[in-house]
Nucleic acid binder design. Structure first.
Lengths: 136, 136
DNA sequence: TTTCAAATGCAAACTATTTGCATTTATAGA
DNA sequence: TCTATAAATGCAAATAGTTTGCATTTGAAA
C-alpha cells in the first residue's frame, strides 16, 4: 500500500504532509480538532485554519470526504475511499462497512429516477457489541 | 392520511402546529430558515429560536430527523418517515428514494459487526435529469 | 541563490445554533 | 368560566465551529 500523494500543483509542506498522515492513521473520519490534537501530541504545532484550508482543498480534489454524523454538529473528514459507516449511538464508535451493499442498487436507481449517480454515503446507527454488554 | 400529532405532554401552540404543517408541506428536508421564511410568507411571524427548540423536541420524540447533506454546512430537518435521498450536485434538488434498498442488508450487518441496528441514512449524489439536459 | 506565488499563523469575522430571561399562553382544576 | 402555574415564546446575547484578511514565511522554478 502506498502513501497518499499531495495533488499536482500544490506545494509539499510539512503541514500538508502531516494532515494526510493523520488521516491515514485514523481509520474513521475525524473532526478538524482531532487532527489538531493528534499533531500537537506528536509535537507539531499547526494552525487550525491551516487544517481547515487543507481539508477543503483535499475535499475539492476528491481525496477527502466531509460528512456530518447523526447528532453531531461538527464536520468529520476522512479519506474518500472509506465512506460507509456503522455508528454506535452510545459511545460514538465508528466502524467501516467493508462490503458496500449499495452497488447492487445503483442500476435500479438510475432507471427509476434518471439520475447520473456520482457517489453515495451510508450511515447505519445502532449499539455496538461493547455497549450492549455494558448496558446489560 | 392523517395529520401529524404533537407528542403527548407538550402544549398545542400555534407555532408548534405551524412548524409541523410546514414540515408536512415540504417533501424533502429543509433548513430551519426555510421554515421561518415559509411561515413569514404565510403571514406568520415566529422566532427562529422557537423553530430550533421545536425541531429539537420533535427530533428527540422521533418525529423529525436532522441531517447534513454533502457540501452543506447547515442542518436540514424532515419528517422521519422520509430519509433516503437522491441529491443533485448541480441544483441541490433532493428526491426521496421510496423503496429503501437497505432492509435486505440489515441481517448481514448485524451478523458481521454485532451491532443492534436502530436506524440508517442513505444519501446518493449525482446529476438530476434536468441538469443533465442543461449541461448538454 | 534568487524570486515570487502559494502556504501558513494569528486574530478577527462570520454564521448557524443555543441559551438566559422576561413575558405570554395553554390547560388543569376550582 | 376563571385562575394558577408550568410550559412555550421572543428577543438579545452568547456560543462554537469554521472562514477570512493580512502580514510573514516557505517551497520550488528559473
Amino acid at each position: 500500500m502506498e502513501s497518499l500523494k499531495i495533488p499536482e500543483g500544490y506545494k509539499i509542506t510539512k503541514q500538508r504532509k502531516a494532515i494526510l498522515e493523520v488521516l491515514e492513521y485514523f481509520e474513521t473520519p475525524v473532526h478538524a480538532e482531532d487532527i489538531f490534537l493528534k499533531l500537537k501530541d506528536l509535537g507539531m504545532d499547526i494552525s487550525l485554519s491551516t487544517i481547515y484550508r487543507n481539508l477543503d482543498m483535499l475535499q475539492k480534489q476528491g481525496l477527502v470526504v466531509k460528512a456530518y454524523m447523526l447528532n453531531e454538529d461538527k464536520a468529520r473528514f476522512g479519506l474518500s475511499s472509506k465512506k460507509n459507516y456503522l455508528v454506535c449511538q452510545e459511545c460514538k464508535k465508528i466502524v467501516i462497512i467493508d462490503n458496500c451493499p449499495f452497488e447492487k442498487f445503483k442500476e435500479e436507481l438510475i432507471e427509476v429516477h434518471g439520475f447520473d449517480i456520482l457517489g453515495h454515503s451510508i450511515e447505519v446507527y445502532g449499539i455496538c457489541p461493547d455497549c450492549k454488554n455494558k448496558l446489560k
